[in-house]
Design a binder for these strands. Structure first.
Length: 146
DNA sequence: GCCAACGTTGGC
DNA sequence: GCCAACGTTGGC
C-alpha cells in the first residue's frame, strides 16, 4: 500500500492512537476493489513511501478492520469529496490498517534489482495503482532481505 | 519540472 | 460504444 510520507508516513502511523488509520482517499476502482473484495483482517501489507525523495518499502502493517465507506467522500471540505457519492450508494471504501513494524528502507531501486521480484505489479512500467497484491513468494523474498 | 503511462470524462 | 482530450501519478 502506497502512501506519500508528506501525507501519512510510517512514523505517523506508528505514532497514532492505537497505531491504526483508515486508508482513506483511494479514488481508483481497481485499488478500491482490492480493499473491498480481497483484504481480510490480519492480512499483512508492505507500507510503501511514494512520491518522495526515497521511494520504497519502509514498514509492515496489517488489516485490522474490513472495508467500509470512506468517510471523506461525503465531506465537502475534503479534497477527496465525491459529489456523486451518497450514504445510500457510497462509491469509495477503505480498510483500516495497524502498524506492525518499521523496516529498513528497501528502495524501489533495490526492489527492481532483485530478479525474483520482477513480476511485482508495483515495479511494472507505468504502474500507478496505490494498492497492489503481493504474491506469497515475493512476500517471503522481501522479508528475507530485510 | 519533465514526461510516460494510464484512467476518466463526455461529446458524438 | 468509440475515442480524443484531459487529468493524475510517480519515478527520475
Amino acid at each position: 500500500m502506497k502512501s506519500e510520507p508528506s501525507d501519512v508516513s510510517i512514523d505517523d502511523l506508528a505514532k497514532r492512537v492505537n497505531k491504526t488509520i483508515a486508508w482513506y482517499g483511494v479514488r481508483n476502482y481497481q485499488a478500491r476493489n482490492f480493499m473491498r473484495d480481497q483484504m481480510c483482517i490480519g492480512d499483512q501489507v508492505f507500507f510503501y513511501h511514494s512520491s518522495c525523495k526515497q521511494p520504497g518499502i519502509v514498514g509492515i502493517a496489517e488489516v485490522c478492520k474490513l472495508s467500509y465507506p470512506d468517510t471523506t467522500q461525503f465531506d465537502s471540505d475534503s479534497k477527496y469529496f465525491d459529489p456523486k457519492a451518497t450514504s445510500e450508494r457510497p462509491r469509495w471504501f477503505n480498510v483500516d490498517v495497524r502498524f506492525i513494524s518499521k523496516t529498513r528502507l528497501i528502495s524501489i531501486k533495490e526492489l527492481r534489482s532483485n530478479l525474483d521480484l520482477k513480476g511485482m505489479p508495483i515495479l511494472q512500467k507505468g504502474n500507478r495503482l496505490s494498492i497492489t497484491p503481493v504474491d506469497p513468494v515475493e512476500w517471503k523474498c522481501i522479508i528475507g532481505i530485510m
